[in-house]
C-alpha cells in the first residue's frame, strides 16, 4: 500500500478549500492593516489603526455586545425548543412523516426570502400577523413591530430560532435514533417515569449531539446576516445592529474597506477562540 495514498486522497479538497478561503483571508489581513480608500486602493501600511478606530467606535461596541445577546438567545432558544420537538418526533405517532416534513420546511426557503415574507407579514397596517393576532384576541390594536428595537429585536431572535430549528432537530433525531431502546425498557422496569427516563438516558446520550449543535449553530448564527438586514438594516437608530450588519455598512455604505476588514478579522478571531475553547472543554468533559 502506498504510504502517500491518504495524502493524494485529501489533496483535491485541500487545494480547493485553500484556494477559496486562504487567499481571501490573506487579502483581508492585508487590508485590515492598510489605509484603503473606498475603491479598495491601498494607500499604505498603517499598523493597527483600523482596529483602534473600530474599538473606539461606540456603535461597534454596542454591535459586539448585541451580537453576544443575539447568538446566545438564538442558539439557546433553538436548543431549548429543538430537544422536546425532536423527542416528540422520535416517538411513533400517526402522521409522523408529515410532521417531520413540516418542521423541515423553514429550511427550504432561503433566509432572505423568509425575511422578506416576514417583513411583509409584520407590516403594521397591511401585515397578516397583526390581523391574525387581533382575530384571535391576543392584541387589541395593531403593533408596528419593526418600529422600535424593543419589539423588532425579539422578533428577529424568534425568527432566528425558527430557521435554526430544522437543522438542529435533524441532528437530534439522528442522535435519538442511535439510543438503544432496551435502555428505556430497563428503566421502565425500574419504575422510572418519563422525566426520569429523559434525565437519566436521553439527555446524557444526546449530550454529544447537543454539543455539536451548539458549535455549528453558534458559527451560523454569529455570521447570520439576512434576517436582520432585510427586516431593519440594523435600525432604528442602530439598535438592532450586530457585527455583520455593522461590517456590511462600513464596507459598502461608507466605503471604509480597511475598518470593515478589521471587523472581519476581529470576528474571525472571536470564532476561533470560541471553537478552541469549546473543543477543549468538551474533550475535558469526555475524559
Amino acid at each position: 500500500m502506498n504510504r502517500n495514498l491518504p495524502l493524494y486522497l485529501i489533496l483535491p479538497s485541500l487545494l480547493l478549500a485553500l484556494f477559496v478561503i486562504s487567499y481571501p483571508l490573506y487579502e483581508l489581513i492585508n487590508l485590515s492593516l492598510s489605509d484603503v480608500n473606498r475603491f479598495g486602493k491601498v494607500r499604505g501600511y498603517i499598523g493597527l489603526e483600523n482596529f483602534t478606530y473600530i474599538f473606539e467606535d461606540p456603535l461597534f461596541i454596542d454591535a459586539a455586545l448585541r451580537t453576544v445577546v443575539w447568538t446566545v438567545a438564538v442558539v439557546g432558544g433553538t436548543i431549548l425548543f429543538s430537544i422536546p420537538i425532536a423527542v416528540i418526533l422520535n416517538t411513533e405517532f400517526h402522521g409522523r412523516g408529515i410532521a417531520r416534513t413540516i418542521l423541515m420546511l423553514p429550511w427550504a426557503i432561503s433566509l432572505p426570502m423568509t425575511a422578506i415574507v416576514w417583513r411583509w407579514s409584520l407590516n403594521g397596517e397591511f401585515g397578516m400577523l397583526n390581523a391574525s393576532l387581533m382575530n384571535v384576541g391576543l392584541i387589541d390594536s395593531p403593533i408596528v413591530w419593526l418600529a422600535q428595537s424593543a419589539t423588532a429585536f425579539p422578533v428577529q431572535i424568534g425568527l432566528g430560532i425558527l430557521v435554526s430549528i430544522p437543522f438542529t432537530i435533524t441532528i437530534f433525531l439522528g442522535g435519538l435514533s442511535s439510543i438503544p431502546l432496551d435502555l428505556y425498557e430497563a428503566a421502565k422496569m425500574d419504575g422510572a417515569n418519563a422525566w426520569q427516563q429523559f434525565k437519566r438516558i436521553t439527555y446524557p446520550l444526546l449530550r454529544p449531539f447537543i454539543n455539536m449543535a451548539i458549535v455549528l449553530n453558534v458559527i451560523y448564527v454569529f455570521n447570520s446576516f439576512p434576517i436582520i438586514w432585510v427586516l431593519t438594516q440594523g435600525g432604528p437608530n442602530n439598535e438592532t445592529d450586530i457585527l455583520v450588519t455593522y461590517l456590511y455598512k462600513q464596507a459598502f455604505s461608507f466605503g471604509h474597506i480597511g475598518q470593515a476588514s478589521a471587523v472581519s478579522i476581529a470576528m474571525f478571531t472571536v470564532l476561533l477562540i470560541f471553537t478552541i475553547f469549546y473543543a477543549r472543554m468538551v474533550m475535558k468533559n469526555e475524559k
Partner: peptide
Amino acid sequence: TQPGVTSYNREDVQNL
C-alpha cells in the same frame, strides 16, 4: 402621523 413612523420608508408612506 401614522403610527410606528420608524418602520416606514418612503415607499411605505407613498403606499399609504
